[in-house]
């Protein structure tokens, strides 16, 4: 399969193989349309990704490439080595997910837009980590939420959720 170019919203190009790019379902369907309109043998397909910035796109493509390498590895390696491979991927993912909240936010939005199945789960899990074990005010601080519940409402919720908050 030929290489394609993904162009982020700030105009940076990323050249990757089409099979890697197809891990994103959005890109896959865009590619299909492009190929249909230009014919199979169009030279270099340029896919604009309008709402993802350069560095986030890079990060997403990192994931896609690793995911593909992992898939290949799983297919190639014998059954006895599968746990080893899985553990390696998990280790990789853990380091991959060491990002700031800002980055995480952009990453999750990108994963949602590009529809990369594994990545969205990974990101939302990491985001859930920011919530687990925190009090409401801590959650608010972490996510920059404005307390927009009226005092009565909040009081009501607090009372019914006392079992969780104490």
């Amino acid at each position: 399969m030929p290489d394609i170019v993904l162009r982020s919203n700030d105009g940076a190009d990323h050249k990757i193989s089409a099979s890697t790019a197809r891990l994103s379902r959005t890109v896959a369907s865009l590619l299909q349309d492009l190929e249909a309109s230009k014919g199979e043998d169009a030279e270099l397909l340029i896919v604009p990704i309008p709402n993802v910035c350069n560095c986030t796109l890079k990060k997403v493509l990192d994931f896609c490439e690793q995911q593909r390498a992992f898939d290949d590895l799983v297919r190639a390696s014998p059954a006895a080595q599968q746990p080893e491979v899985t553990r390696k991927t998990q280790a990789w993912r853990e380091t991959y997910m060491k990002v700031s909240t800002d980055e995480l936010y952009h990453l999750v939005m990108a994963a949602h837009y590009l529809d990369v199945p594994g990545l969205l789960g990974l990101c939302t899990d990491a985001m859930a980590d920011h919530i687990r074990g925190k009090s409401p005010s801590q959650v608010r601080a972490c996510f920059g939420l404005k307390p927009n519940l009226s005092p009565e409402e909040e009081d009501d919720i607090r009372r019914s959720n006392l079992w969780a908050l104490s």
């Binding site: 939302t124 925190k134 409401p136 959650v139 608010r140 927009n148 519940l149 919720i157 959720n161 079992w163």
Partner: peptide, 17 residues
């Protein structure tokens, strides 16, 4: 995101906004 949570964190998150 909330799908990943246990009931305690979920209840706490409900109070946030």
């Amino acid at each position: 995101v909330l799908d990943w949570l246990d009931p305690y964190s979920l209840a706490a998150a409900a109070c946030a906004s």
